[in-house]
Design a protein around this nucleic acid. Structure first.
Length: 225
DNA sequence: ATATCGATTATCT
DNA sequence: GATAATCGATATG
């Protein structure tokens, strides 16, 4: 008879919001360090919605006006104004007539720069994610990559839209969508060129956790600390 | 496993 | 009018 001394590890412990200063830096630094952090969607309890939490496993850095692949290269327009605002806010855009994608603003007011979220590892609220993605429980558990691997997929799994989330403060746990950290241990990071762009394609600005199955696209590029 | 292609609309030229 | 920080389906090895 084994003693019931050890509870099973919870998927995630206490989650602390990331401070604004975390985002007030070069997007390359933010991208590298945000791997292993958590994206949280607070459930709408009145609609029987569960909280959704995923661990960030793949991101890309966009460097602002000087980066030809960045939306900020078009200047401060109605669409891109969040990128030019203060750090730590959600920039959500609509692409290919079908999908939303989530960024967090970096740098400082007046200086654009952001990190695009490309893949998460689902931890809590998997059934809500599956529902949002129009997948059965079986399909979601059988291949979690269909849930949150890819920027469009993770946005859909977390119910992220421009109308709902663009401009919201991702450093406040009062927000419906926010970023936090638990005590996740540092893991090996890999770097590769960014995906889906046609300009500045050679720059290694895609960062992902080595060996993580939720990473979208190629998983075998250059090693990095 | 990789390759190609259509969907569908906000934004910019 | 063209393009896009994508996805899912289909075809093929």
């Amino acid at each position: 008879m084994t003693p019931v001394s050890a509870r099973p590890d919870p998927a995630v412990g206490n989650i602390r919001p990331l401070p604004r200063a975390f985002f007030a830096r070069d997007p390359r630094r933010v991208a590298r360090e945000i791997l292993g952090k958590l994206l949280v969607r607070e459930g709408d309890v009145r609609q029987g919605d569960m909280h959704r939490v995923g661990r960030v496993v793949e991101v890309e850095a966009y460097l602002g006006e000087k980066d030809p692949a960045a939306h900020a290269a078009a200047g401060n327009t109605e669409r891109t104004r969040v990128l030019f605002g203060p750090p730590g806010y959600a920039y959500v855009y609509f692409i290919y007539g079908n999908h939303y994608c989530l960024n967090v603003s970096c740098e400082r007011e007046g200086k654009a720069g952001s990190v695009l979220f490309r893949a998460l590892e689902p931890l809590l609220g998997i059934e809500s994610m599956a529902h949002a993605r129009k997948l059965s429980r079986i399909e979601a558990l059988g291949d979690p990559r269909r849930l949150t691997s890819g920027p469009g997929r993770l946005a859909e799994a977390f119910g992220i839209t421009r109308a709902r989330d663009n401009g919201s403060d991702l450093t406040s746990s009062q927000s419906s969508l926010w970023l936090g950290e638990d005590n996740f241990a540092d893991a090996a990071v890999r770097v590769s060129p960014r995906i889906g762009i046609t300009k500045a394609t050679a720059n290694p600005l895609r960062y992902f956790l080595a060996g993580n199955r939720l990473v979208s696209g190629p998983r075998l590029r250059s090693s990095s600390g």
